[in-house]
């Protein structure tokens, strides 16, 4: 716990100082990296913790991007628009979660599979609101600076990671994990599974919503295909699975892997990057189902013997 905290602090400090030492291209790369951390950790909260795999989480990113862009155009300040983007995405997630989380795991996954496509279709067809396929171009005069976007993204990444850290240490996190391990047994030991799943699902939409808005300011142009992006779904799933689902640092490691693969292949073969991710995903699921982190981590911490001792005393 203390180790996690110090590691986290060092990383945040480094990230906070980065704008001083980087050019715009490098800062852009870091921004995208942090964006992925924010998204991966959000996905981790619902799918990593509970095992309810959401194949459609990009929809909340897309909704956030449109909310952020439209409100900025309508004259709101960027930070208020980011707040609204988070709120609208969450408000949308709540009814979706209430309906779909009653489905057993695999059925939930299938139901989520097309959700992003529905989002994209709506964004394309609702021309009055979204300008349809033409997309929305944001005038540079309205947009926050790159550094501002960078710090906003850093804030979201820290918030998402912190949320996982906090949840992992609480009873709520334990309940989510119990749902993943055996939902029937969890319910049989007093876990209100429906409530927990819906809360986790709604919470997992907050940061993708906000991140979508920041992303819109960062790119200054959005259209249905660029924010309801199928590749984003693939990346979220891959990042968390590769690193280790339901863990604090697994998704961060996953992001680093995914972004490295992307950097190495992006320039020449953007699709090769996704094909490689698919292959990596299969390998990890078959041979390291707990993710890459499970190789590095020792099962029993140093607290083990102390705990056993405490246990013996209690058992007297």
């Amino acid at each position: 716990m203390r180790l996690d905290l110090s590691l986290g602090l060092i990383l945040v400090l480094l990230a906070a100082l980065a704008p001083v030492a980087t050019n715009d291209y490098q800062l852009s790369f870091l921004l995208q990296l942090l964006l992925m951390v924010a998204l991966a950790q959000s996905w981790n909260l619902i799918s990593g913790m509970t095992g309810y795999v959401s194949f459609g989480h990009a929809v909340f990113f897309g909704v956030g991007a449109y909310t952020g862009a439209l409100l900025l155009v309508a004259g709101h300040s960027w930070w208020a628009a980011v707040g609204w983007a988070a709120l609208i995405a969450t408000a949308l997630a709540l009814p979706i979660g209430l309906l779909t989380l009653r489905l057993h795991g695999p059925y939930f996954a299938i139901a989520m599979l097309g959700l992003n496509e529905v989002g994209r279709t709506v964004a394309t067809l609702w021309v009055d609101l979204t300008e349809g396929g033409d997309g929305i171009a944001l005038s540079p005069a309205l947009l926050p600076a790159l550094e501002t976007n960078y710090y906003a993204t850093l804030f979201l990444a820290v918030l998402a990671t912190l949320a996982i850290g906090v949840v992992l240490g609480t009873r709520f996190g334990l309940e989510l994990q119990a749902i993943r391990e055996d939902e029937g047994a969890a319910e049989m030991v007093g876990v209100n599974t429906t409530r927990d799943k819906v809360i986790a699902f709604a919470a997992s939409a907050v940061i993708p919503g906000a991140a979508g808005a920041v992303y819109a300011y960062y790119t200054s142009f959005i259209d249905p295909l660029s924010v309801f992006l199928p590749a984003l779904n693939i990346q979220m799933v891959a990042m968390v699975l590769l690193g280790g689902r339901g863990t604090l640092w697994g998704p961060v490691i996953g992001v680093v892997i995914v972004m490295s693969v992307r950097e190495l292949t992006w320039a020449e073969f953007p699709t090769l990057h996704l094909a490689l991710l698919g292959a990596l995903m299969i390998l990890v699921i078959l041979f390291l189902p707990e993710g890459i982190l499970s190789v590095l981590r020792k099962r029993r911490g140093p607290g083990s013997t102390r705990l056993a001792e405490e246990c013996r005393q209690q058992g007297e």
Binding site: V237, L274, A279, M281, I282, I285, L286
Partner: peptide, 8 residues
């Protein structure tokens, strides 16, 4: 997840 990877 495995067939998802395959489809990708």
């Amino acid at each position: 997840l495995v067939t998802y990877g395959l489809s990708i």
